[in-house]
Structure formats: C-alpha cells, structure tokens
Design a protein around this nucleic acid. Sequence first.
DNA 1: AATTATTGTGCGTTATAGCGCACATTTAAT
DNA 2: ATTAAATGTGCGCTATAACGCACAATAATT
Lengths: 179, 179
Amino acid sequence: MKESIFKSEIANHLKAERKRKKLSLDATAKLTGVSKAMLGQIEREESSPTIATLWKIASGLNTSFSAFFANEPALQSGERVFPEDERMKVNTIFPFQQDTRIEVFEITLLDHHQQMSSPHDIGIVEHVHVIHGKMKVYFDQQWHVLEAGERIRFYSDQSHGYEAISETAVFHNIVSYPK
Amino acid sequence: MKESIFKSEIANHLKAERKRKKLSLDATAKLTGVSKAMLGQIEREESSPTIATLWKIASGLNTSFSAFFANEPALQSGERVFPEDERMKVNTIFPFQQDTRIEVFEITLLDHHQQMSSPHDIGIVEHVHVIHGKMKVYFDQQWHVLEAGERIRFYSDQSHGYEAISETAVFHNIVSYPK
DNA sequence: AATTATTGTGCGTTATAGCGCACATTTAAT
DNA sequence: ATTAAATGTGCGCTATAACGCACAATAATT
C-alpha cells in the first residue's frame, strides 16, 4: 500500500460521507470543530491531516476512524482470495456478509506448509484458533507458537503468515472488517 | 474516546516497539525516513503526527498501522452471561473487544440438554458451527437440524435455543454485535 | 431582474509538524 | 583516566497544517 493513495482515500471518504449526510463544508466545520478551509483542502488532497484533526472529523461526523483508510467498497465487498496452493486447503465456514462484516474459514496446512501474506487494509483483525496439530503464526515481526486449542488475535495490516509445525495443522480463521 | 488519550497511545506504542527492536532514535529515523527529532517529540507527546508520517513510521518498522490506535480493553465488556447449568459448558474462545464487536464461545451440550434463550438486542447475529455430534437450533419459529461440520446463521433478537440430538454436542458460537 | 442566502475556493496569518545540526550525557572502548 | 562512539534532547529554521476572513459563484427568495 502506497502512502499517496491514503490521501485520496481520506478525501473520497470525507466527501462521500459529507454528501451522504447532505452537509455543507460550513456545517461539517461546526460539527467537527475543523475549519471549513481545512476540510476543503483535505477533500481536494491539498493537505495531509494530522491524526488529531482526522479524529475530530471522524468523531464529529459520528463515523469510524478506520473507515477513512478502507478501500472502495467495490473491492472489499467480496471474499478474501487465497493463493492457489495444493498444500493449503481453504474451506469457507461463514462467507462475508455486509451486516456482520466478518468471514470465517477453516484452513488446513499440509506437509509443514508455510503461507505468508502481505498487509491487508487497515483495521482488519484476524483471529486464529487451532483445531488440530501445532502451528505458528507470524505478526509483529515474531512467530507465535500455538498448540491445538489455543488462539491468538492480531491486526493483519502488516506482514503476517502461518506455518504448520506438525505435519498438518487445521485452524479456524475469523476475519473482521471494520466499519 | 478523548483526543488526547490516543496521542499517548501512539507515543507508548512507538516507544515500546522501538525498545522491543532495540533501536535508537537514530536507527529508526534511518528505517522510517522520519527525523529522529520528530520521533522523539512524538514519543514525548509534544507533537501530533500527520497521517503521512505515521504511515512512514508503521511502514518502516514493518508494524501494523492500527496498533497505534489499539484502544484499551473496553469498560463495556459486552460479554454475554450464560445460565448456570451443569449440562451446558461454555468456554470462551475470543472475549468481546470493542474494535471487532464479536465474541466466540465453544459450547458443549451434555445429556441431550436443551437451552432456550429469550430475545437479545436487535442487530445481534449468532453463528452456530457444529464441531461434534448432532444438534438442532431454534429460531424463526422452527427447529433446524445440524450435523457435525454444518453451520447456520440467525438474528438472535427473537426467541431461540439449542438442543443436542446426540447425547453430547459441541458447537462454536460466534456472536456479532452491531456497531 | 434584483436581492439574499449558501456554498466552495483563494488569500494572508498563525501555529505547529518536521528537518538538520549541535550539545550534554551516558556507555563503551582504549 | 581519557578517548571515542552512541543516544536522547534542545535550538533555529523551513514547510505546511490549520485558522479566520473575504471573495466569486451558484441557488433560492423577493
């Protein structure tokens, strides 16, 4: 994810949210405590706001903070795509639904397979619950070893991955998307 | 959530992450492309970084962006309380957290036990995934039979319940609370 | 058509994010 | 003990985030 696309996502989301609520720059300025000049500049991508002001905007508009970093709904609507690999079997337990914004997979790693993944969008949380075998999960620059029955939770907007320590490992993977 | 408290969250997380990696301000400056003076000010809460710089920091440290905003364990622990019953064992897999607004239980029904429940708040969605045995789930005025491995999803703002058909049944219960 | 709000943008000013460099302290090496 | 390297803070400077106000444009009212 490049830095520059941030600005346009923030701009788009702010503009969309403001239009959806049928608010003028002046009205949102009063709601958020951020000057309308600044709001205009952010929408035109002429300014990269500080977290403090972005917080004031999110807070004043009663919208979530992470929503400013989400990709277009068109892209994130569906299910996550997994790489085609014979040694990693993915079974969808609960597909993504707009109301809950979670999806659940049962994943089987064969032959000590390791599966790495590049960062996802901001705010996405992954839950790993080991059903069979022994495995390790990578995030925060560390491998975390998990026995059967154990579980762990992490932000997946970073490099992460899974690897079976026993020959095969089965785990449940709950992915939560913000909104 | 007040604005000031997550400035300290950012400060704490940056400091902790830097210490964990045993990096100096100088070293992190080279990694992230952010001057060490600025990094120092952020750690001392003397400066509120822009989104762009915080991104450079997260990116350069290979850490998650969201982790800088990790909210403290919510006071409002939405955790559901279950009736005391010897024939229904509830094991919490993932406790409720404010960011995801889900909680996950592993529930064991013994001796053909039936457990009914009165309606919860509107918008709450329950997911049932049968691990062992055979059971049925009640909602929408009827019972739904589930074999091991099968799953079902329903709104729990209505009378609902579970019952083991085999002598014992084990299922996972994912509860999603609306934002 | 003329007037009056409303809305977004441009401008000048202030506040502060962010940088490079130097300084004082500590830590390690000689 | 002395030197040398490394680490965090302070200072001056520049870039820009953020503000208030005024202006030009459109939309609504008379």
